[in-house]
């Protein structure tokens, strides 16, 4: 009896080291951040000296125009880049899903942007957007057109940041869509050709619906990432001009480093965390639903066989 009890504990014993590491490395910082978000805490103070202010950081933030602006910029940014990246990425995948000579080389070139460090991407685009020596404005000038204030005008800066993000992250969607396309059942596509579907009808009625599970996961992954974007924008515009490109991560960074409001920065991080958590839960629920449906289908098929 006693041996049996010990035996049952064995797996937990083996898991304990990993669990402890995780608790220290993951739970502690998150708990620390949640605790800090209830404090009025200046970096010069030790955490014990900081004043407990309850939910006032959260309430203040909701009334803070700069935070609301930043949240809006973040939402707008994420929505626009992810939509455009999905359209371009899936579109490219649909176009390039064929046997072209040198396709593997082409595919590697396509995913290169994704592999470059974000800081480098930011620097690269900043130089290309440079008002006088940047390639864009020099090209415009040589064509006899007016130069564009890529990074110095609020709405242009927002557009420029979006273009850079699309350049960097469309390949991610492209590569996953292509993988999804190439795993589609060939014979179903041939059957649709015989049934009289045009290439467009094949895309709409067969390919896209069959790719949907992959596309939804890709979309959620990309959304989660887009909400956390920092480096490229930090290097390109540092949030400016004004607050036009100040996404939440930047705002958090500035609140902590410039305004020295650690409690408020922590509360802001928690808002972002909640937002991402909602997306993650949505993804989890979606996966659950898909699995449950697959299990139901299997059971139904088994019962009739």
């Amino acid at each position: 009896m006693q041996t049996a009890n010990v035996n049952r504990l064995t797996p937990y014993l083996f898991m304990a080291p990993a669990l402890i590491v995780m608790a220290v490395a993951l739970m502690y910082p998150i708990g620390y951040m949640i605790y800090a978000s209830f404090l009025n805490w200046n970096p010069s103070q030790r955490i014990g000296e900081a004043e407990w202010v309850g939910f006032s950081n959260y309430i203040n933030l909701l009334q803070d125009d700069a935070f609301r602006e930043s949240l809006w910029v973040t939402l707008k940014f994420a929505a626009i880049v992810v939509t455009l990246e999905m359209i371009i990425g899936v579109g490219l995948a649909l176009l390039l899903d064929r046997n072209i000579r040198g396709m593997s080389v082409l595919r590697t070139i396509f995913i290169l942007p994704m592999m470059i460090a974000p800081i480098v991407v930011g620097l690269m685009w900043r130089y290309m957007y440079h008002p006088t020596v940047g390639i864009f404005n020099r090209t415009l000038k040589s064509l006899g057109l007016e130069p564009i204030p890529w990074l110095s005008d609020g709405s242009w800066a927002f557009t420029s940041v979006i273009i850079a993000d699309i350049w960097q992250w469309t390949p991610f969607i492209f590569i996953l869509s292509l993988a999804a396309l190439q795993s589609l059942p060939r014979s179903a596509l041939e059957a649709s050709r015989i049934d009289g579907a045009t290439p467009w009808q094949q895309v709409i009625y067969i390919k896209l619906p069959l790719m949907m599970p992959v596309l939804i996961v890709t979309l959620l992954l990309r959304l989660i990432d887009a909400f956390k974007v920092l480096e490229v924008i930090l290097v390109m515009t540092n949030g400016g001009p004004g607050l036009s490109t100040e996404i939440l991560s930047l705002r958090i960074n500035r609140t902590a480093a410039e305004f020295r409001e650690l409690g408020e920065a922590a509360a802001m991080s928690n808002y972002l965390l909640i937002l991402l958590l909602l997306l993650t839960v949505a993804m989890y629920l979606y996966n659950k639903a898909v699995e449950a449906r697959a299990a139901r289908l299997r059971a139904a098929a088994g019962g009739d066989a």
């Binding site: 014979s187 059957a191 050709r193 015989i194 049934d195 009289g196 579907a197 009625y205 619906p209």
Partner: peptide, 20 residues
């Protein structure tokens, strides 16, 4: 001619049903 212009119907080895 394209398959659809040939007035044919086909049954595939793996059935090739549209899963969705």
């Amino acid at each position: 001619l394209e398959p659809k212009e040939r007035d044919i119907a086909m049954v595939f080895q793996d059935y090739a049903l549209y899963p969705h």
